[in-house]
Design a protein around this nucleic acid. Structure first.
Length: 807
DNA sequence: AGCACGCCGACT
DNA sequence: GTCGGCGTGCTC
């Protein structure tokens, strides 16, 4: 009875997206387990690649084993994927149509992804002269060196004569960080004796003995010995060979919060609504019910305190918990709230961590050293056992859906995991997504509401809408209404702070000729180039193309070429002119690109080192500054006009969120919204902070137009360098879909994407709206499978089930 | 992905 | 006549 392993190999293609069977060598028989990574030979050249073991089977002696290859070696001592995560990967593959290997890699820290190398090794029967001329007398050469030196063709010929071997290497990147240190092996008396026997000129050795005596048997790191006593590694080695000391290597875990101290906080008293929510959730924890809760609570209603107390309960039950937070609000303030309550039991998974730090946090969780995981989207894969609760804060945020393969939604996987562990999920938001809220309405989810502001600042800010079609404006592009300017002036005078938001989505500054109307286009994409003042260039936001700013119109040679539109840099300039004395902080993708820059800017603003914080959407999230008494939205409606049925929902959520930034302290807050659509319901209802009414109205709009949550959606996107090729392919796909889907399904398209040409490729899309199509996912998979030949010839085809972006 | 096999153009 | 171009097909 021999054992075989089912292995998913690291070859991300449709054709290889299936388990391959490998023989387990006798000596590894009980060492290979499901969930481990292994090195396997693959393909005709038997190149070595990484694979994941998904199952172990026994095989009858009568079965033919000759067709099977053997596992080369394990890459892990213990499985890196639990049975649960192996099953979850299958769910991900089914629902996102991604390759299984891509799902596995997404679930693990990046360092677990193998990198590959090749080298050329001289065989023993290779004549010496060849070794000398080609290999410079050495036994081997890296593939890279062979390529750069131009010797590769010669060597490949030698390979055909069987004089040289190609050896494939799989590199493990997940190295554990260690520190080297040493410890005395001798007693004090023995050390003294050694010291006496040393020659007086062996100064370093005398020093070493002195240090060993000083340490009195305890360990010191090499680094410390070097810094404190000036002891070199050379003399430590001497000490080792002479048998005085023992060199030890100790594993260290990188702790990204090592420099922070957290003082413990304790549970605050809950108000009656919070108490109700807390009891409902903890009841589900104790009863092991996999219920989904919607915790709907306005800004400042104390959702986080409910989370904290639920987690405290979960820990008391000896269970674990996951808290998902949007990447952008995973700030030190957020982390602190959890660390202060639960100390070292909290692990943080954050994209700003280095790959090594992420790996260490992962191991800490995997070893059971952390019981609570706070993190962004991918923290849903945290290797926790015995889950007691999963919390998703700001549930409506679109960052919970990954925009590349596998296009998973963390909310869906949270519900899947909760079902596996029989524990509750808590979805928290002030402005829940329509999907979630509708499910709560239908009692699929359990609704919990927090309507009171828990903190003393109880008033909602006063909100005004400025109709920009009539308002008296300032700035070249009518950026500021007189009304808003006066209010800013007042705050500056009172030494209070202002937050200004520029809604950049679907909008940016471009260069246009005043004489002929020429706009500088991207040579690769159907879009105009965006002006970047910092680099003094024009850039394409789709393909990255960059060129200098023209000083003459390239079309009519006129020098009346000016910029239009409102970028943050542009507004900043205008602000400096209007308020020369004000200190302005700009926060956008350009100023926050560097690691930690985001936090630094917020820190500065919090210390009142600036009067005005000017930024894009990113300033709307979670920042909490008591001295901010005015929030201005410069252009509320740019996202409103996008051809996306979620445009109103996003605008409402954004305005509600940014309004919540005003008046967090004891001073009253005010919000000014500038818009060209003052009567739009999303803007009017955001002004009144009326989520209820917005929900009802928007539901009727969605019902009318057959959109989610009344329908499910799927999107097929295809692209090709030649427009007629994509268009024809998409019409083929359309025909197949029509045949396959029920009469209830609605198919939109194929239509060219809003920006049809990107990077010299033409993009088309089909959107399917449906109520119940039990075989849709299988059919979509078959579309991908049946177009393999075209895909290898330059067609790109992708499917997004339940897409969030339609533009 | 990456390697081998296989069928057509410009060279010793 | 061959060397090598990269199209096509397969990988336990």
């Amino acid at each position: 009875m021999r054992k075989v392993a089912e292995v998913i190999v690291d070859v991300p293609t449709m054709q290889t997206d299936l388990p391959y069977t490998y023989l387990i060598p006798d000596e590894l028989e009980d060492k290979i387990l499901p969930g481990m990574r292994v090195i396997v030979p693959f393909g005709k050249g038997n190149r070595k690649i990484q694979g994941f073991v998904t199952a172990i089977n026994e095989i009858l002696p009568t079965e033919d084993l000759t067709a099977l290859k053997q596992i080369e070696a394990p890459m892990d001592l213990v499985p890196v994927l639990s049975k649960e995560l192996l099953e979850m990967a299958e769910e991900m593959r089914r629902t996102t149509l991604a390759f299984k290997i891509t799902c596995f890699q997404t679930m693990l820290p990046n360092v677990m992804k193998a990198s590959y190398d090749k080298k050329l090794v001289v065989r023993s029967d290779c004549p010496q002269e060849i070794m000398d001329t080609v290999f410079d007398g050495l036994a081997e050469m890296t593939w890279e060196d062979a390529q750069t030196s131009g010797k590769l063709p010669t060597i490949m010929k030698l390979r055909q004569e069987n004089l040289v071997d190609v050896v494939y290497l799989v590199n493990k990147k997940n190295r554990v960080k260690t520190i080297k240190g040493f410890q005395s092996l001798l007693t004090s008396q023995e050390l003294m004796a050694v010291k006496d026997s040393l020659k007086p000129n062996a100064k370093q050795q005398h020093l070493l003995i002195d240090v060993l005596l000083l340490l009195d048997g305890s360990m010191i790191s090499n680094k410390e010995a070097q810094e404190l006593y000036d002891i070199s590694t050379a003399v430590i080695k001497t000490g080792q060979t002479k048998g005085w000391l023992n060199i030890i290597e100790q594993e260290v875990k990188r702790d990204p919060y090592a420099n922070h101290t957290f003082k413990q906080t304790f549970a605050a008293t809950l108000n009656s609504e919070q108490q109700l929510a807390y009891e409902a959730i903890t009841h589900a924890v104790r009863e092991q019910k996999s219920e989904t809760f919607l915790l709907e609570g306005i800004t400042g209603s104390g959702k986080t305190e409910v989370y904290l107390q639920v987690i405290a309960d979960v820990l008391k039950e000896n269970k674990t918990g996951i808290v998902l937070v949007p990447e952008i609000s995973l700030t030190p303030q957020t982390v602190r709230r959890f660390k202060e309550r639960f100390g070292s039991e909290v692990a943080v998974l954050h994209s700003a961590l280095s790959v090594g730090e992420k790996y260490d946090e992962w191991r800490k969780i995997e070893h059971g050293d952390a019981k609570v995981v706070v993190g962004a989207r991918s923290a849903i894969f945290a290797p926790l056992d015995n889950l007691g609760v999963i919390i998703i804060d700001e549930e409506h945020e679109s960052t919970y859906k990954q925009e590349e393969n596998p296009r998973y939604h963390a909310r869906d996987l949270a519900i899947w995991r909760a079902n596996y562990h029989q524990c509750p999920v808590v979805l928290g938001s002030a402005t829940p997504s329509l999907e979630t809220r509708a499910r709560a309405q239908k009692k699929v989810y359990h609704m919990l509401q927090l309507t009171e502001r828990a903190t003393q600042a109880s008033r909602l800010p006063k909100t005004e809408i400025i109709n920009m079609t009539e308002a008296e404006t300032f700035g070249k592009m009518q950026t500021f209404s007189r009304h808003l300017l006066e209010k800013i002036q007042l705050r500056l005078h009172k030494k209070e702070q202002v937050v200004l938001m520029l809604n950049r989505r679907g909008y940016s500054s471009f260069v246009m000729c005043r004489d002929c109307g020429f706009v500088v286009p991207c040579p690769n994409c159907d879009i105009s180039l965006t002006l970047h003042m910092d680099s003094h260039s024009m850039k394409c936001h789709y393909c990255g193309h960059e060129e200098p700013i023209p000083n003459k119109c390239p079309d009519c040679q006129s020098n009346k070429i000016r910029y239009y539109g409102t970028g943050t840099q542009k507004v900043e300039e205008e602000l400096t002119q209007l308020f020369p004395k004000a200190r302005i902080l700009r926060m956008d993708v350009d100023t926050t690109r560097k690691k930690g820059a985001h936090e630094r800017l917020l820190e500065q603003f919090g210390q009142h080192e600036a009067d005005i914080l000017l930024g894009t959407q990113m300033i709307a999230k979670g920042l909490d500054f008591p001295n901010v008494t005015l929030v201005g939205v410069l252009n509320a409606d740019t996202a409103l006009n996008l051809p996306d049925f979620r445009a109103s929902e996003r605008t409402f959520q954004l305005l509600t969120q940014v309004s919540g930034r005003a008046g967090r302290g004891d001073k009253a807050g005010e919000v000014v919204i500038q818009t060209f659509n003052p009567d739009h319901y999303a803007i009017q209802l955001a002004k009144r902070h009326d989520y209820e009414q917005f929900f009802r109205y928007e539901m009727s709009v969605r019902h009318e137009a057959n959109y989610p949550p009344y329908y499910f959606t799927a999107q097929i996107i295809a692209s090709h360098p030649e427009e007629n090729v994509v268009a024809k392919k998409m019409y083929d796909i359309l025909l197949g879909l029509k045949e396959q889907l029920s009469a209830q399904a609605i198919i939109l398209g194929p239509t060219p994407k809003a920006v049809m040409r990107v990077n010299n490729r033409y993009f088309y899309q089909i959107v399917i709206k449906y109520k119940a199509e039990p075989h849709l996912y299988e059919y979509l998979r078959s579309i991908l499978e049946n177009n393999q030949t075209e895909i290898s010839k330059g067609l790109k085809l992708s499917v997004d089930t339940e897409p969030l972006n339609f533009v």
